[in-house]
Design a binder for these strands. Structure first.
Lengths: 184, 184
DNA sequence: ATGTGCATGTAACTGGTTACATGATTCG
DNA sequence: CGAATCATGTAACCAGTTACATGCACAT
């Protein structure tokens, strides 16, 4: 379900606006952000970098070294900066937001009340765990992180909290209805 | 981005728990939910249905008709029900549309304060528009909708509201900082 | 010697989308 | 008569992942 809009290509281009980097640097950096967006696979990254060159959005500076493989440092071009800006402004897709969970919800609603409750509880556990991971990331980052990371983390926290609140509310409601049915 | 977890395969299997359906029925039904999760393409659906048969998760009842193409009605098997339940309980991973926005946020934070503000505002417009679409869906659905759709809509609304609130808050903060810098 | 870090990449696969092909029926 | 709806599907493509391949340097 690669949703055509989560474009690795432009994201790495965006990283190059901070400073020129090699593929390896990029992977390391993205990995340090894995709590937000996961990592990048080399099988995705290297072809993407080559494509950037081909389209004139980036350049390489190849540092040859006798002992090790050459270090290829990529940089963004002016054309790249222009295209990047367009990507940033591009809608992220008609909010089919939270699609994965919504699909499960639609399916789970066909289960018995007890089954549905079990599934919402399960989801709550997961949500709480990932919320905790965000908190840990927040603690770990301290004052060192840059604006982008702080913004991204804040956003993720807000959404995670909203989800938890919804789950708790709904869990209460569904349980109550279930017990009413039992009694009635 | 095919996020390996948004599995069309299991979602259609889940729809079959409500009642046996043909591929066409499924497309129509999912299309009626397009405000939540978008549609299904036939190029995705028909292969998925065939795969369900191959794996023993579903069966077909082929109604031959002289005048029209045969109508193939699919139903879920017990094995299918078992696997489906596992899918429902499976973690969903960070949502891909959230990921798409976070990536843009990380990139946009490298722009000037004015640029960053413009980008957050842009996102706010989109978020408000999709929030509005959800409200319309809510109004349109009235009392007719089933539990699953009501749950899904409520969830989507909560998350959308949280996102809007975050955007407004952050827009205020970033603007203020920008004007402080200007003055200082 | 053994594993970890540096550093590059390819091949096969996955889970989709887009666009196309086919053909009858029904509605305006 | 033409458009929409019913109803099936295929082929080409896309963006990405997984697993693999290669090889040197440095620390344990």
């Amino acid at each position: 379900m690669p949703a055509g809009n989560v474009s690795l290509r432009y994201f790495v281009l965006g990283l190059l606006t901070q400073q020129p980097m090699s593929g390896y640097d990029i992977r390391r950096f993205v990995k340090s952000l894995s709590w937000l967006i996961g990592g990048v696979s080399s099988g995705g990254l290297y072809p993407a970098l080559r494509a950037l060159l081909g389209d004139g959005l980036g350049t390489v500076d190849i540092k040859l070294r006798t002992d090790r493989p050459p270090r290829k440092v990529y940089a963004i071009t002016d054309v790249g900066r222009r295209e990047l800006r367009q990507w940033v402004d591009r809608p992220t897709g008609p909010d089919s937001s939270m699609k994965a969970f919504i699909m499960r919800l639609l399916v789970a609603s066909n289960y018995s009340p007890a089954g549905l409750i079990a599934r919402i509880e399960q989801r709550r556990l997961q949500a709480a765990a990932s919320r905790l991971a965000l908190d840990e990331a927040l603690a770990a980052m301290g004052d060192s992180a840059d604006l982008g990371q702080r913004l991204a983390l804040g956003y993720a926290l807000s959404v995670a909290d909203a989800e938890l609140a919804w789950l708790d509310r709904e869990l209460g409601r569904v349980s109550q209805e279930a017990s009413l049915v039992e009694v009635g």
